[in-house]
Design a protein around this nucleic acid. Sequence first.
DNA 1: AATATGACCATAC
DNA 2: TGTATGGCCATAT
Length: 107
Amino acid sequence: MAAKKPLPFSDSVMKQVRSIPRGEVRSYAQVAIYAGRPGAARGVGRELKHLPGQATQVPWWRVIRSDGTLAPPVAHEQAKRLRAEGVTVDERGQVFRVVVKKDGKAL
DNA sequence: AATATGACCATAC
DNA sequence: TGTATGGCCATAT
């Protein structure tokens, strides 16, 4: 019997994105790594772009850039949704990442 | 199969 | 500190 076929890139990415807890953010690169394709950050962004957007169940807005900024095409919508979850977003689209200690306590 | 594009990332200047 | 350049990966044509 053939070995277990790895999930398609897109499915793997979606799975990871959906696993991001509310109020938490993750970078494209980080998602790519968790999806099993380190360095495929661009591919991640491409997949998220393919999403329905507002009508999706995938919390794409929790995926931001590695430097904490938001991607220009969606920055507006994204900032709005992030703030709705308690994530502090600067006017310039800068996200103050929620740092959590191993205790689960916010820093 | 090769080229072009993109919601990126890291480094160099 | 901000801008420019190269690299990486996954689709579309």
